[in-house]
Design a protein around this nucleic acid. Structure first.
Lengths: 338, 338
DNA sequence: CTGAAAGCGCTAACAG
DNA sequence: CTGTTAGCGCTTTCAG
């Protein structure tokens, strides 16, 4: 493995000069530089980023911490799309990305800042964290620059990107209301998810503004899984046959609801309308295709990385980025009033 | 940021002793060790992996190079599932994973070994490479340990994991033959994919063994994309109305074929049977649900990582790992003979 | 059982 | 424009 020392020797200069030449400093004779560059190429030199990172105290590496990335979670590739977005910007900006996956249990073994410091990441992006995950508290205490996806915490060293979940949910429910529905239920995620709290808020606002009563028994948690949503929908629909529409806090759960409806012989959209959330790939392939609130997951990742790098390089105005959502009308909703 | 030096000072020992104590060497007084560990905790110490890597000449880091991971590719989350598998083993074994995404163009800018050496990864996993990608040649020349996904190259420093693509394809086609089909077309990926070559081989073998003639005009390339497959299927089905079954080299392309059939008013499976390959998530959600050859993508990644780490740690017998595939019969095939 | 010293490959004053 | 020197944080001989 050739080092700058080898190059220095061969070029009859000092290592300093080599370092400067290779790093594009101006105060190097152009001839010397050319010679050095040539020798470097000839010797097939690659800089050692470990050594560089050690002395520079930064690694040009970002950490991406994802919670709950396991075999099952590949179903909604939400995480993957975010990752793709992150990866895109990271490689544009010539950073590197190291991937950490963690679970709530693991977070007790090794702290967030331990993880980041050991690896010497310059900053971190956190995705899929729950509101009560240990790491979240640490993020605030630590001074490692960090961007959260879908969790609105802000400080000198932490920013976040998310979508407008209140508005998104509101649009979903308004669409149902405009279609003539009065008894609209909601299958939410769980109380540890920030987005669930916000989407519930949007649901309530939409009802209120339309003069419809909010009924607690119309809202249940589906834990963001297809199976739980199916069970919960089953119970809900049997207990409250007057329900003609459901707003689901995720598309995956909407799939569960559709299954439940099929089992109960409830037709979609004739007897029951459904609006999902996320616009995952699957949603356009189901029969009937799912009406949903789309959010740009790739962009979520891309912006998170952008924000983080801006924070690192000190070129940042705001630590917050809120993305738009969009209602996509497919086949699980229909106009009842007409 | 506290270092072993700080600990040494506070404990009144040398840095050597601290290093040994923290790394679990036996030749250190148990009392001293306890004291050191305690102080380390108190000072909230994290080892600096850069420094360690620099002197040890290994980083306990694996590189995952994926080709063509972009916004579009999130559709089949093949890559993501492989990544999940890799990630799983990597964290079990306490390695780290750095993600590089590359494109054929990018590969001309920075060579494979440059990438690996700069980052000081101990080994690399390559996913999604094409047969003529520049990196592939480099992999062979380089002595960096490397495991390829779905490309059968083997040497002292390189191994691979794949599935039995010949057999997989054969099973698909045999299933069609047993259902009574005689005119079976194939929509393949492209010639730069190893798996395409092998799957074509399996297709031919199955035909031959059944005494059916192989017709060149029945095989076209769909480039592994839904859109191209749709176009190609359209043309194929119009030109050769006698075709009653298509074997598709990927599920994604099978979706395209289904679209084409719908446009042409060809009923599936009554008029046309389809068998896909991969068993991507979507395949069970389409209407009708897709019959396909399943491969365990998570396992592909898991095994790749396992193989690589075994190679690195010198505990390896074979450099090759071949996984099984499984025919999953759903609704796009039906028995014609009955 | 412990410490002193050297060095991994690189960058950054500082001095010429 | 170039070289000398020091040091990033850690591990590892080699002596005690």
């Amino acid at each position: 493995m050739t080092t700058i020392k080898d190059i220095a020797k061969k070029a009859n200069v000092s290592v300093t000069t080599v370092s400067r030449a290779l790093n594009g400093y101006s105060d190097v004779n152009e001839k010397t530089r050319q010679k050095i560059i040539e020798i470097a190429k000839e010797l097939n030199y690659s800089p050692n980023t470990l050594a560089r990172g050690l002395v520079m105290k930064k690694s040009k590496t970002l950490g991406m911490l994802v919670s709950g990335m396991n075999r099952a979670s590949t179903k909604d590739n939400f995480t993957f799309e975010v990752l793709s977005g992150v990866n895109e910007l990271v490689s544009e900006k010539d950073y590197d990305l190291v991937l950490f996956s963690t679970t709530t249990t693991k977070q007790r073994e090794k702290t967030y800042s331990q993880l980041c410091r050991e690896r010497r990441v310059d900053g971190a992006i956190l995705q899929g964290m729950k509101i009560d995950d240990p790491y979240l508290k640490e993020v605030i205490e630590s001074d490692i620059p960090c961007v959260l996806v879908d969790i609105p915490i802000e400080s000198d060293s932490v920013g976040y990107v998310t979508t407008d979940n209140v508005l998104g949910a509101k649009k979903a429910v308004q669409h149902l209301i405009e279609s003539g529905h009065k008894n609209i239920a909601m299958i939410n995620g769980h109380d540890q998810a920030y987005v669930s709290i916000k989407r519930l808020e949007g649901y309530r606002q939409a009802l209120e503004e339309a003069g419809l009563e909010y009924k607690e028994e119309y809202v249940v948690n589906g834990e963001f899984t297809e199976a739980t949503a199916e069970t919960e929908a089953m119970e809900l629909l049997q207990k409250h046959p007057e329900i003609t529409a459901i707003f689901s806090a995720s598309d995956l759960m909407a799939l569960g609801i559709m299954k439940a409806a099929r089992t109960l012989n409830i037709r979609i959209p004739e007897d029951l309308s459904i609006v999902g959330y996320d616009n995952i790939l699957l949603s356009s392939y189901t029969t009937p295709a799912l009406t949903t609130i789309a959010q740009d997951k790739f962009q979520l990742g891309y912006r998170a990385a952008e924000l983080l790098i801006n924070m690192l390089e000190g070129t940042v105005d705001s630590h917050v980025c809120i993305l738009k959502t969009e209602l996509i009308i497919r086949e699980t909703t229909t106009n009842r009033s007409s």
